[in-house]
Design a binder for these strands. Sequence first.
RNA 1: GGAGCAGACUAAAUGGUCGCUGGAACUUAACUUUAAGUUCUGGAGGAAAGUCCGGGCUCCACAGGGCAGGAUGGUCGCUAACAGCGACUGGGGGUGACCCCAAGGAAAGUGCCACAGAAAAUAUACCGCCAUGAUCAGGCCCAAACCUCUUUAUGGUAAGGGUGAAAAGGUGAGGUAAGAGCUCACCAGUAUUCAGGGUGACCUGAAUAGCUUGGAAAACCCCAUCCGGAGCAAGACCAAAUAGGAGAGCUGGGUUGCCCGCCUUCAUGCUCUCGGGUAGGUCGCUUGAGGCGUCUGGCAACAGGCGUCCCAGCUGAAUGACCAUUGCCUGAUGUUUAUCAGGAACAGAACCCGGCUUAUUGUCUGCUCCAGCA
RNA 2: UGGGGGAUCGUAUAGGGGCAAUACACCAGACUCUGGAUCUGGAUACCCAGGUUCGAAUCCUGGUCCCCCAG
Length: 121
Amino acid sequence: MSCFSFKRKEKIRKRSEFITIYNKGVKKETQHFKIAILPNNKQWSRLGITVSKKIGNAVKRNYVKRRLREYFRLHKAYLSGSFDIVITAKTGANRLKYSDICKEMNDTLSPEIVMQDNAKN
RNA sequence: GGAGCAGACUAAAUGGUCGCUGGAACUUAACUUUAAGUUCUGGAGGAAAGUCCGGGCUCCACAGGGCAGGAUGGUCGCUAACAGCGACUGGGGGUGACCCCAAGGAAAGUGCCACAGAAAAUAUACCGCCAUGAUCAGGCCCAAACCUCUUUAUGGUAAGGGUGAAAAGGUGAGGUAAGAGCUCACCAGUAUUCAGGGUGACCUGAAUAGCUUGGAAAACCCCAUCCGGAGCAAGACCAAAUAGGAGAGCUGGGUUGCCCGCCUUCAUGCUCUCGGGUAGGUCGCUUGAGGCGUCUGGCAACAGGCGUCCCAGCUGAAUGACCAUUGCCUGAUGUUUAUCAGGAACAGAACCCGGCUUAUUGUCUGCUCCAGCA
RNA sequence: UGGGGGAUCGUAUAGGGGCAAUACACCAGACUCUGGAUCUGGAUACCCAGGUUCGAAUCCUGGUCCCCCAG
């Protein structure tokens, strides 16, 4: 398996899993996103994305979701372990450029910060 | 050059790196349908949207009768069907190209027409006009009669009345006490009959009639035609953990708003049997009123024949992200070139089709009107 | 995705072809030493665009937004 792929099993698909990650995970907030992280006991990390109707129509919502998935696909190898990550987009996220998304996510999801958060827990 | 009308097409292209997903073939594991990999091949729209109509498909009884309810409304045709489309008729708008029309019935019935106005529809006549009777006053010297005038009763009369969105056919002549389609001429309109044309809506012409009938049916309603209900979260199958019930028959009950008719799923009671079912998964799920080309019939919508092709199938929901080059548009420098900056709309399949409506980028073709020049 | 309902002053509701009503809130005045209560007066609305009609909040058509149900 290539290290840049994104298969179906790496996707969070059930509403109950979303709720447990919201309730038990470590929550962070940036200018355009809310992020919840919870360590899991699988061999791989998983990603779930929530984009509400406030962002815009279906084209804009899909655009945000595709680019967040692309970021996760290219950067998940840097994570120091296996985590369930849920990203919620806030208003204005559809007007960001891809480089701005990378900058915001790197500030919050870099390995050192994630390690520190887990050490606290 | 400007303003506009109609129709058609389009929805930037190419390459690189990294990915997602359907199908086919092969390989390797487990082992009989799963996982991983390789190769080939396919992967959003003209509106996929709104869910406004119509069908297919599935289940309810292959779906039946009546009432209620709903839809449609010029004619002929097309279609699986339609509130759609095509051609034509009638009406309306525009100088014109052309566009728009829920376009049956108000002499079947019920109701409505605020305010204003005499009156808003069976003209029960308020003012006015006219006739007759009574009465007050005056005129001729007096009375009666007669004339003028005041008030009033009875009757006739729709010519006139600042209103109103809308006023009871219009103009002229005759006629009358005063008037009136009361009569006549012309004009407008309605109905019936006849002749001609057209499949038909209807058109053209002639005669006769009563002379005339307000608006509104997107008020109720009447007439004609059509409609059973729910919707792929329909429906079918496999089936953990947990909990103890679950199914069949009879009674009861249920079924679209109601009745008939029909049926035996839920609840209750009795009898018999041992499997039922949630999460989850699989199927339904993409070969179809299909696309493209060509020929024939038809004014056209469309239909038929032949050839050829297989062209998305997701489910917290794939169909992409980034980079480079070229092309397009806008602005600035500039005024052939060129450089820099910015932009590229509306918008994402969710069972599938036929339409309608709404949003929206660019181009082309044909036509109309206006202005200028030759 | 499918089905159903609604939109009227700042708020909650009436009105279903002819001047848009009521309650609370707001503003001004009166009463009071002042405030509250009370009384009087006022301002502020028919979601948007077409059509039918003499006339539309109401009837019809299209759109926008919100709510509910089914998982």
